[in-house]
Amino acid sequence: TTITITINGEELRIRGDHEEIHKILKAWEEDHNDEEIVRLIRELAER
Rank of each mutant, 00 (worst) to 15 (best):
E35C: 08
W28R: 01
I3V: 11
T2K: 05
E36M: 10
E35S: 12
I7V: 12
E30Q: 10
T2F: 13
T4D: 03
I37V: 12
L40A: 12
K23G: 08
T4V: 14
T2V: 10
G16W: 05
R42I: 14
L25W: 02
L40R: 14
T6F: 10
I5T: 01
I41F: 01
E19A: 11
E36Q: 10
G9E: 04
I5S: 00
R15N: 14
A27V: 07
E11P: 05
N33D: 12
H32L: 11
K23C: 02
V38K: 13
I7C: 06
T2E: 15
E11A: 13
R13W: 13
I37W: 04
E11I: 14
T6C: 14
I3M: 05
I14K: 00
D31H: 14
A45F: 05
L12N: 02
E46W: 03
N33Q: 08
I37E: 01
H22K: 13
W28Q: 02
K26Q: 13
R39D: 05
D34C: 14
E11T: 13
E10T: 07
V38E: 09
E36F: 12
D31C: 08
R39T: 04
G9N: 08
H22A: 13
L40F: 02
R39M: 04
H32W: 11
E10H: 07
N8D: 12
K26Y: 05
R15F: 15
R47C: 06
I5N: 00
N33A: 09
E20F: 14
A45K: 05
A27Y: 09
H32R: 12
A27L: 15
I37G: 01
I41W: 00
T1K: 15
E36W: 13
R39K: 10
H32F: 10
E43W: 02
R47Y: 03
T1R: 08
N33H: 14
E36L: 12
E11K: 15
H32Y: 08
I21V: 12
E11V: 12
I24N: 01
N8E: 06
E19G: 07
R39L: 04
H32S: 11
G16T: 07
E35F: 06
H18E: 11
G16A: 12
R42V: 07
E29W: 10
I41T: 01
R15W: 15
E36N: 15
I24T: 02
D17Y: 07
L12W: 06
T2R: 05
H22W: 05
I21A: 03
I3S: 02
G9A: 03
G16I: 08
E43F: 03
I41V: 06
I24D: 00
E19S: 10
R42C: 11
T4F: 05
E29R: 04
T2I: 12
H18G: 06
D17T: 14
L40W: 01
E30G: 08
I14F: 05
R47G: 09
V38I: 15
D31S: 12
E36G: 07
G9M: 03
A45D: 05
E19F: 09
R47L: 10
E20N: 06
R42T: 09
I37R: 02
E30W: 05
R39Y: 01
R15C: 12
I3H: 07
N8K: 06
I7P: 00
H32D: 08
T1E: 14
D31A: 11
